[in-house]
Amino acid sequence: MLQVYLPIAEISVNLLVILTLGAAVGFISGMFGVGGGFLLTPFLIFLGIPPAIAVATGANQIVASSVSGALAQWRRGNVDTTMGGILIIGGLAGSIAGVLLVKALKAYGQADLAISLGYVTFLGTIGSLMLAESVRALRRERQGKPVSVRRPGSHNWVHGLPFKMRFKRSKLYISAIPPLLIGAMVGILVSVLGVGGGFIMVPAMIYLLRMPTSVVIGTSLFQIIFVTAAVTLLHAVFNQTLDILLAFLLIVGGVLGGQYGARAGQKLKGEQLRALLALMVLAVAIRLLIGLVVTPSDLYSIAPVVPL
């Protein structure tokens, strides 16, 4: 069989399994237009890759999978670089905090738990919200009512904060504090969970910052590339948890899968697509929750001593 020894994870995995996983996650991200990190990292954990290595390697994979999307958006002029820059600054601060948090949690033997709990909370909440939203939309559609697009209002509390800046492309004059905080939050999510963070960044940009939807995707992808790159580097330096061979294989699979996924996605309707994605997100959350609740077959575990 095509077994490949992973130099950092120090386990032997089946080459085809890893390529297929990369392709499947790439396919799903292409189909739904999402990053896919939220699926990749848990599945790597299910395959037996140590969670901390799954997180760092997942971040590295997202760098590659975000490039083509970001470039396409950039060429259409859909990236607000000023906003992106502020989000990146926040993201870098969050990444450093997150990577150091993982290091500390690892020393106390709680990193795996924190990663699983983080996923259950994060995916459970988002999955439920998405499912409720798309079920409502599907029902409305069946009743013949038009699918209403919620129009964001013009002002909220964000506009009362100091350190205002002008964001030309977003046509906004708002405080730099909310984007900094959003960026930091995303940075923590990337470094602790190995996700891109688009999941919370996109809604936050639309509903909190009131950015025009046309620049939201491009700007978030722009930020994601820089932050996932920084997280990859930071994990490599502080935690030695990056497996370059695993990342490479996942990227190869992901690139191929992504192309077919995008084509498949065009054949499905938006509302159905979102309901499907919501179900998938919830399934992963439930699978991880079961792992936390069910009495483990072995209460004891061993790990090398990690200096703080």
């Binding site: 590295n60 994979q61 760098v63 590659a64 999978s65 975000s66 490039v67 083509s68 590339i225 790159a229 990859t232 580097l233 490599a236 990056l242 370059i244 990342a247 490479f248 990227i251 190869v252 690139v255």
Partner: peptide
């Protein structure tokens, strides 16, 4: 690792 990912993207 970052460079490889960027180049492959």
């Amino acid at each position: 690792a970052v460079a490889i990912a960027l180049l492959m993207g």
